[in-house]
Design a protein around this nucleic acid. Structure first.
Lengths: 336, 336
DNA sequence: CTGTTAGCGCTTTCAG
DNA sequence: CTGAAAGCGCTAACAG
């Protein structure tokens, strides 16, 4: 049969409460006793029953990862974050639950409430773009559910972030250094922080180089391959074409390269193309895509870790920053 | 404070056990009583506490989705299945937990045991390629954990399946009808059922057309874009090139189209290309990819539904079949 | 058809 | 530093 805490207690000749203390890393247990209890647990392969722990301790050991499933449904980005969150949860014997939530829908808050009431997560991890949805954050605070965010726009709160603006700026500076002047930018989905930061970095670099912005070269996209193709066609139809395109993510950049093929433009000879994210695709393309590496999996892991620190009473939690790195590959070259 | 079952019982003037009966859709409650109890639940916005239910009822209301994270890490396929599983679980107030498991690793079974002991899932959903890993199935049966599979190779067990061989055959017949004779096939990862079925369908159609197999035209791939590019380069280097390529999935087909661009081959004028899966990419490509629609999300949902039927005591569960459908788009055309 | 009693496996509270 | 008692919110087993 199942080994219970009581069985361990008997085997170690201590009270159940002492075993509980050891299990939860509490103080007030002598080193010697602790060792004996741990040995007994090990020997009997004891596994605490999560429901019993939750019920008695009034916590669930569950972390919910919330995401918006409205746009860009098949991105690998979320899958990578999920992977990282899962790793962190596993490491601390928490379980992870994933919850798609439609930011645009009217019953967003009702669904959030249902999630909390039905599953009692001890905390939640927020992913873009819902990291900055004010009603959500408000409700989480009201209901006393701690949260950590991946790439939040605000500076309060805990989680993880990369300096995307600096990365975008560095990318455009790379193009400038290659002699490009007519540099186009494909913007991502309008209300995403990522879109804003990357656009801001583009503008910053262009301005620093003394280049006035040409509105025709800044095109709205939607983070998808298809929107990259469409935007590129627009750009290529211009009387004065850009010599380089900086897309706000790799999917759109891939679309640009595809459209370049349609127009008979050789990348990078006739056109330099670069993206952002360093998805697996970037390396597989030919020519391989110059892009910014964003460690999504690691960011998911770190965000979850900050949350877990809070949940485990290990301090207040931080907004940690991860470094970016330019991956200069073969899709960008000196202007002819 | 929290509304408990006892509070509902008091409000409806019945015993706690009666409320429990209503909550669990059990028999032996008069319609009138049931109605009164439901009304009270509704009025008080009662939410049963999952841990209490689990502890007392010896079940967790958790379904674990198991997948192999070793190959093709960033496929949207798993994300879609996950989405479907989640929908089914939600509909029956179960929660879903996702568990990556490395099939090749030595501690596979130990990890499975840990999962079961630590989280007590009421059942699991298996995804390719671990749907047919005998030691896994054996252990699940030993530990009495019901499971349902997405695209299992065997005919026993419950879950969901598409007739992939028939679909592959239909795809090749489409190419034959366009006049193609030198038709190449890119195989997926060797030990996957999908690879086998699709290859078998290819062979079946070719044989039925009286065409002997040319080994040079059947190339091993790995379900990835990169492997599609590599395989296509091999094919294009042949003295006698194929006029059509049937890749075992869309990612590889996209790689083939990419490589065709490198070689100056126009699709579909110089080369017909088709894939399998109907990923979002297929529609976005230019020319749009001819492929087989595989309703992954729906398959995830149906597999989970079969499992839930078993868990909820609604019969034994079936191996249901979903229909395939050819998506004939612009990447295939009559041979010149 | 309905209710009573006991208890799931753990943690809390409080006393030593 | 350690332990005894009570109980988390629900359901099983039985009794009516």
């Amino acid at each position: 049969m199942r080994v219970r805490l009581e069985d361990v207690a008997r085997a170690a000749s201590v009270s159940p409460k002492t075993v509980s203390r050891v299990l939860n890393d509490e103080a007030n247990v002598s080193d010697e006793t602790r060792k004996r209890v741990l040995a007994a647990m090990e020997a009997m392969d004891y596994r605490p029953h999560p429901s019993a722990r939750s019920l008695a301790g009034n916590r669930s050991f569950v972390v919910a990862m919330l995401y918006d499933n409205n746009d860009n449904p098949a991105s690998t980005y979320l899958a990578e974050i999920q992977d990282g969150v899962l790793e962190a949860c596993d490491a601390h014997r928490y379980s992870m639950m994933v919850r798609p939530l439609r930011m645009r829908s009217d019953d967003f808050i009702r669904r959030l409430d249902a999630l909390i009431s039905d599953h009692h997560p001890d905390g939640v991890v927020l992913t873009p773009p819902i990291t900055d949805y004010a009603p959500l954050l408000k409700r989480l605070r009201e209901r006393n559910v701690p949260y950590a965010s991946v790439s939040p726009q605000g500076d309060d709160g805990i989680g993880v972030r990369m300096d995307e603006q600096a990365a975008a700026r560095a990318m455009v500076e790379h193009l400038l250094a290659l002699g490009h002047r007519r540099i186009a930018h494909l913007i991502g989905i309008a209300d995403h922080g990522a879109s804003r930061w990357r656009l801001a970095g583009y503008r910053e670099a262009m301005a620093a180089a003394g280049l006035p912005e040409d509105p025709a070269l800044v095109v709205q996209g939607a983070f998808t391959f298809g929107s990259g193709v469409a935007a590129a066609r627009e750009l290529f139809a211009l009387k004065s074409r850009p010599t380089a395109v900086f897309a706000a993510n790799d999917d759109m950049a891939t679309g640009v390269m595809w459209a370049a093929g349609e127009y008979g433009l050789k990348v990078p000879h006739d056109l330099s193309v670069c993206g952002f994210d360093d998805t697996p695709l970037a390396r597989q393309l030919w020519p391989a895509l110059t892009t910014v590496q964003q460690p999504s999996r690691e960011m998911g892991r770190l965000a979850a870790l900050q949350l877990l620190n809070v949940l485990r009473g290990r301090g207040p939690g931080q907004l940690v920053q991860v470094p970016f790195s330019l991956q200069v590959r073969d899709s960008t070259a000196r202007v002819p």
